[in-house]
Structure formats: C-alpha cells, structure tokens
Design a protein around this nucleic acid. Structure first.
Lengths: 135, 135, 135, 135
DNA sequence: GTGGTCTAGACCACA
DNA sequence: GTGGTCTAGACCACT
C-alpha cells in the first residue's frame, strides 16, 4: 500500500507525505478517516517512528490532516484551513512548470490532455501511480 | 535581478538554476547570449564562484546553456539535445501538481486559463516574476 | 584497485567515473551493492572527499548509481532511466573510433573479434583490466 | 570545409586535429599533399595562428603529417611510424566503449551494422560528418 | 556516519 | 580573462 522506495533520493518522510497526500486527494482515504498510528505504521513499514512522526507533522502543517491528542490523526479533506496562500503557491509553481513544458516542446493540447486525465482518475477514485523519481 | 534567498532550504545553486531557466524560457536571455562570467556573477551576488559554476554546470547538463573554456557560457535555447527524458519527468511532475491543484479546489477552467496566460506571456517575451519559497 | 594517475591530463573525478563504470558494467559491482562512502574512499585514495563526490554525482546523473542522504551510494545497474541520449552519444563516439581503427590497419575481422571478446567477458562477469592513458 | 564549432566544449585546436585526421583517413587529403600554411588557414578560419600551430604540432606527434622547415606541412598517410602502440591504445579504448554500448542495451547486430557503415563510407571516400558533441 | 552544500583560495588550460 | 579542477575545512539534513 505504501511502497516506499528506500533507495530513492527523496527522503523517506517526504515520500510518506507525498504518498499520503495522494491517497487523500484521490479519496482513497476518506474524510475523518483515522490514519494508522505512528507506532503501527512504523512497524508495518519497518521504519523509524520518528520518520513517521515527521511526515504526520508536515501533513498537519499543510492542512491535510488533523491530530487529536490521545486519539490519533485524521484526514481533513475539505480543507477548512485557509487555502489561499497554498493555492497561490501551487498556481505559481504550475505556471513555472507549464512554461518549462512549453519550452521543451510539449503542446497545449498535450497539457490539456494531462489535465483531463488527472481529473478523471481523481473523480474515479483511482490511484494514479506515477511515482518513482530518481534524479 | 536574482533575489537569492540565502536562508532558504533550497540550495543556492538550485535557486540559480531555476532562475536562469526561467530567464531563458521567457526569452529574456536570448539564444547565444553570453551569460555573466562565473567570477563576475559571483562577485555581484557576493557568492562563491564555485557555487555559480555548479549552477552553470547543471544548466549545461540539462541542455540550457553551453560553456566554452576560454570564452564563457552561452544560452543554447534551441534544445538540440535529446530531451525526451526531461519531457517525461516534467509531465510526471505536472500530473502530481495538477492533482494537488484540483484537490485544493482550483477548477479546470482556472487551469486552462493558466495555460493560455503562460503561453501568451512566453510568446510575448514577458518575464513572469513570481519567486519566493521558503519551505 | 583504482590506480589513479594524479598527473594525467584527465581529471581525477573523470578517471574515477570511468573506472567505476567499468566495474559496474563488468558486474564486479553488483546491483544495489553499496559503494564505499565518500569519506572512506577519499581517505583510501588520499584524495579530497569533494572530488569523490563529484564523481559519484556524475555517475548518478548518468544513471549508473543512486545516492541516498543518510545511507550511502548504491549501484543501479538496471538502467531504468531513459538512456536514449546516452546511446546516441556512445554510437557517435564508436563510429569515430572505428574509423580511426580501420585507418590504423585494424581489420574488420579483428573488430568483430573484439566485440565477441567483450561480449563474452561481460556475460562471464570478468574484469577486463586495461587502463593507463597519459595523453 | 572545416566547419569549426566555436561553441563546442571541445577546444578548437582539438577540433582541428580531429577534422584533419578525418580528412586524411578518408583520403580527401592525399599522400604528400601540402596542407595550407598556418597563416593562410588561420586567416581563412579567422582563428588565432597559435591555435593552428598547436593542431599541426599535435598531428605531427601522432604521425599523421610531417613538416619540412621552410616548405610546409604534408600528409603522411602511409604511417611509416610505429603504429603498434597506437593500435593497442585504440583497441583498448574500443573494448571499453563496446562494453558500455552492450551495457546500455545496444545489440551486437547494431554494432556490426555500425562497423559496415563506417567501412563503406571510408572506402567510398565519403566525408562522414557526425561531429558535434556538446556534453 | 551518510551524502550534500558552501566557502576560500590555489592552480591549470584555452583564447 | 574565461571555464575547470582540486584542496581544506565547515556546517547541515537524514538515518
């Protein structure tokens, strides 16, 4: 379910963050669903609990989950937090990458195809696995 | 012109790479234009020359510029190198970010608007400024 | 084991890259095998760690190894990266060298013998030692 | 006729050496033919004469041409010099690159096709232009 | 302990 | 003057 790549250049905790984000975004983890406890997940993935901790903290900071003392961590999903800053950041990043894509010769049609692809897989509740990344 | 953030988590040389890519993509730096010499730029930004070199080297590896020993570094721009690998990478990243954008509530219409915006500013030779990022 | 030539015109880090490539290609270093750490190798060869790092970084860029921050550097070997650009480059270089070989009087038969020789030694897991080069 | 690439990473004098080697190998410059004088060639290519000098010196050292004081430089072609060292060197280099080619997935058939290709273009007296090289 | 970044300063090769 | 390599030594992030 998590398929961490211990060999990837990307720190494990970041992989966890990204993976969980994906699961939340794609509705695999539903609103208010409880995430596995730090200890359990750590054991499952045979990873240091600190690493899990760090990932959960990061997700909370970004508004994807919320933690309740003594109960655990839960999916936020509707993003009650103030997105505006986040949205602005994502848009800026997107602009940069779109510019790079166009520069590399990717056509607008291809870009739009990408969008509809992603959009469909998201609404279907797919799990679009397109990870790896090994600079 | 460069606005480096020495305190950022993102390495200085990477900031430089991104910035220069932007300038090249947006045609602010034109084909075969000479980049500032390693030492000059280093002095301007009060940064160690080695750091500049690392950035230039990376840009060269990615096909954006070329460097000649006793002469200097120049914009490549026509991308004669085989960039299929680069394209694949960019597409994957775009997919991830589109997914995140949709999750944050950005609509497809907004995404398409972004594309046309970028497309126009690029062909106009604009420079879309929008940096920051202090993770 | 490494036999660096500090006086050669070829940079030390390039010598290292070539040598390690050879070891990987000839299966002396096996898949996922851990390379000596930057510092250890630096001490062994009495060379600055930065130089080793440069070599490792280059090998990573070319897809031969991968490095993970707190863990070490490891052999990639399966070449999952898109190497079409690399292939093209190697082919062009080969053409030049074949032309030179023919000029020097090496016959086509000899060239074909070379190929089968190399092919066999590679599949056998040999290590064909034949360095030097002091331009 | 020379098509130097002033933008290439490869030093100009080396480009000259390679180019002249090619011309000699492909019989475009015939035995005992006089090469253009340093000054003339320098003017033609609008290049510093020192650079030409360096190239000619290198070619002479490698046995491709011979220089007669006061007369000029001439093509050697039959290689009266002792090739054995040169041959050995080329063979070793070839072995390395064949190994790399095989590792990258190039098939033996492709390699043999390369050989016949080169062989034909050489005997035809072609000018196989496959330069560039822009690391 | 691992890789990664950065600095300061030296020296070389090319034009 | 240009890029390129190398050293020595410091500090950071991840495990």
């Amino acid at each position: 379910m998590f398929e961490l790549d211990l060999r990837s250049r990307k720190p494990i905790y970041e992989q966890l963050v990204d993976r969980l984000k994906q699961l939340i975004i794609n509705n695999v983890l539903e609103k208010d669903e409880k995430l596995p406890s730090v200890r359990v997940l750590a054991q499952q993935l045979s990873i240091n609990p600190n690493t899990i901790q760090k990932a959960y903290r990061e997700l909370e900071a970004q508004g994807y989950i919320y933690s309740v003392k003594g109960k655990g961590s839960f999916v936020n999903h509707i993003m009650m937090t103030d997105n505006s800053a986040e949205i602005k950041k994502v848009k800026e990043q997107l602009k940069k990458q779109i510019a790079e894509a166009l520069f590399l010769g990717i056509t607008i049609e291809e870009l739009e195809k990408l969008i509809t692809e992603v959009e469909q897989s998201v609404t279907r509740g797919d799990e679009d696995d397109s990870s790896s990344e090994r600079r």
